[in-house]
Amino acid sequence: MSACEQHRNIDMYEWDFIAVFSDIDLLALGLLNTLKVTSLALLFGIPLGLMLAVSRLSRFKPLSFSASFIIEFFRTTPPLVQLFWFFFALPILIDIRMTPLIASVLTFSIQSSAFFAEIFRGGIQSIDKGQWEGAKAIGMNYWQSMRRIILPQAVKRMIPAFMERSIELLKTTTLVSTVAYTDLMYQANDLAQKTFRPLEVYTVVAVMYFILIFVFSQVSLLIEHRLARSGESTVR
């Protein structure tokens, strides 16, 4: 085929979105599952991250050392390797029936908790020492000062970094398609094979992801500006 002919063929490519939009409910289900994995990972990841952060800040060396190790390990290994480990390896080690959903939620809860822990730690450490001393002076113990004095102030500073990480998490959940969890990416692969329209399917899905993530990032930017105006420094 000559270059000219080839060129004409490309020009003649007929976009056909009908095949995609007639099966849009499949993609909608995928989108719902993507949001489901993300929110479950947040639900478990946030408390776990807080526990890791507090442990890492602990003066008890074995505790802070093991928390540091967990955090660094999950931050430096690729999420796809972690997902494969939880999906293929863990069920052999402990006798449980592993489903794609459990493996996905497990992986992303732990993975994001490692990142959240560092954000929480930065926030807690950014609070002036005088606040701890003040709390101690009026007779509060460690947990009381943490809960009533430190965390309420730290949380405000953590919000921008926290939201950025949550958006990162939302993007990373596309990996769950590789262990056959029916998220948006998986549904896209499925639909592309069924309709023989990969160009349209993947473009529509990319646009869907873009809108979803773009909206979240704009909201997080808005909140960040609000916080900056209220004179709150941010932690990164």
Binding site: K171, M185, P198, L199, Y202, V205, Y209, I213, F214
Partner: peptide, 14 residues
């Protein structure tokens, strides 16, 4: 604002 996996797959198939 799009996941990198979507980008790789888009470049491969689309």
């Amino acid at each position: 604002n799009t996941p990198v996996l979507v980008q790789i797959i888009w470049f491969y198939y689309a």
